[in-house]
Design a binder for these strands. Structure first.
Length: 415
DNA sequence: TCTGGGGTCCTAGGACCC
DNA sequence: TCTGGGGTCCTAGGACCC
């Protein structure tokens, strides 16, 4: 048994709904749909168990959810609330092990290998954690315990709602065998169909196959799938120790219009807003983007992306906007647009080589924009805007002299 | 059914280089 | 003449996850 790990996967039950219930207890026990109003463009972010009885589930269009369950209560999402409670969950987990990894806002892994003397046997420790989460956050979760991330994640899913499931070392394959292949993380609708087409329905069917067969049919992905069917962390799932920091690979923002629009001014104003949001997050995380990508979706849902790699990586609104606007003007057919997106990739921590003039220009802009960021923090997102969406007199001033933006010496008194 | 928003990873072709 | 082989970067698209 030496070398075996003990990994917990903690998954919050109906997380967004449960947080909303804390703020409005009258929602408890009722069919609740979080994500938007019944007649809005959008999808279900989370559905209460009462709503799930009517076939409502996450990712379902809101209008469909309304048809399935007209008496459901539709609630707008509150991301800041979910982040706050996600932080509370993290604090509880962190008391049990320093090796914590929030895999998303509502799920986490912790590695408790070697903590048996401190926490007791795996199942005892898991139950203690389950109680601690409930006591400190007033939220239910489910916990899977095993020797791998993969099996623990599948186990927490099987334990729902509000349960704990331990798959003892050596029992992994037997636990997985009767489950549908769709339960394996990484197997979605398309992969499920492709696997079914060659007669594979259960994880046990996968495990019984020669892995060379899977590699021949499905390539690298198939080989990783063979490993997963035996309970191993394989492929992209095999990422180092629990809690290892990984650098962000991209930053993006996108917006779906309430109604499709072919109004060039409105589209470019949105492009300016999205570019500003992306650039701001680049500055906040101290990153520079090498590649800017535009995303364009038309009424028929056909989606196009156009990317360009810059000579000099940037974190400035003006550069992100200039590039995304150039890509937009080249790509847009003039037809009504459903969605616009701006994406920054090829992220790095320095801006690299630059000549003196460019360096000075960049530095002036960076300082000005940091001042704008601070202003927005104080007075709200709409207090200042740059680029297309900006009031024209303000735009002139900025273009002539970025240093004249509110900043040092011009800062209004503290409120 | 009429399909959000923020991500990650993978594939595949062409350019370009040695 | 009639076509190499690998490596890396760029771009576009798609599956998948929460």
């Amino acid at each position: 048994m030496a070398g075996l790990k003990t990994i917990f996967h903690i998954d919050m039950d109906a997380f967004f709904v449960s947080v909303e219930e804390l703020f409005d207890p009258s929602l408890k026990g009722k069919p609740v749909v979080v994500g938007g109003q019944a007649n809005e463009r959008g999808v279900v972010s989370a559905a209460s168990y009462a709503a799930r009885k009517y076939g409502v589930h996450s990712a379902m269009p809101l209008r469909t959810a309304y048809k399935q369950c007209p008496h459901a209560i539709f609630v707008d999402g509150h991301p800041h609330r979910y982040r706050e409670y996600s932080g509370k969950v993290f604090e509880v987990l962190n008391r049990f092990s320093p090796r914590v990894e929030m895999a998303s806002i509502d799920e986490a892994y912790i590695d408790v290998t070697g903590a048996e003397r401190l926490l007791g046997p795996p199942l005892v420790a898991a139950h203690a954690l389950h109680r601690a989460v409930k006591r400190d956050t007033d939220l239910n979760c489910s916990i899977g315990v095993s020797t791998s991330r993969l099996v623990s994640k599948i186990a927490s899913d099987q334990a729902k709602p509000n349960g704990v499931l331990w798959i003892m070392p050596g029992m992994e394959a037997r636990f997985l065998a009767p489950l549908d292949v769709r339960k394996v993380p990484g197997v979605g609708k398309v992969a499920e169909k492709n696997l079914n087409a060659v007669g594979i329905r259960k994880v046990g069917d996968l495990a019984a196959l020669d892995e060379r067969f899977l590699e021949q049919h499905f390539g690298k992905w198939g080989l990783a799938l063979a490993g997963k069917s035996h309970g191993l962390d394989a492929g992209a799932w095999f990422h180092g120790e629990v809690g290892d920091e990984t650098d962000a690979k991209s930053i993006s923002h996108e917006h779906t219009f309430n109604e499709d629009t072919a109004d060039a001014d409105a589209l470019e104003a949105m492009l300016a807003r999205l570019s500003g949001m992306v650039a701001r997050r680049l500055r906040e995380s101290g990153l520079f983007a090498r590649t800017i990508q535009l995303k364009l979706r038309y009424s028929d849902f056909k989606t196009y992306t156009r990317a360009h790699t810059l000579d000099h990586p940037t974190q400035l609104d003006i550069d992100v906007l200039n590039e995304s606007r150039r890509l937009f003007r080249r790509a847009w057919t003039g037809a009504p647009v459903r969605l616009l997106g701006v994406h920054a990739g090829g992220l790095q921590e320095t801006e690299g080589q630059m000549n003196l003039l460019e360096g000075e220009r960049t530095e002036r802009w960076r300082k000005a924009l940091e001042a704008v960021d601070r202003m927005r923090d104080k007075f709200g997102e709409s207090s200042l805007s740059l680029g297309t969406g900006m009031k024209s007199r303000f735009r002139e001033r900025v273009h002539e002299n970025p240093a004249s933006l509110p900043g040092k010496g011009h800062r209004p008194a503290k409120s």
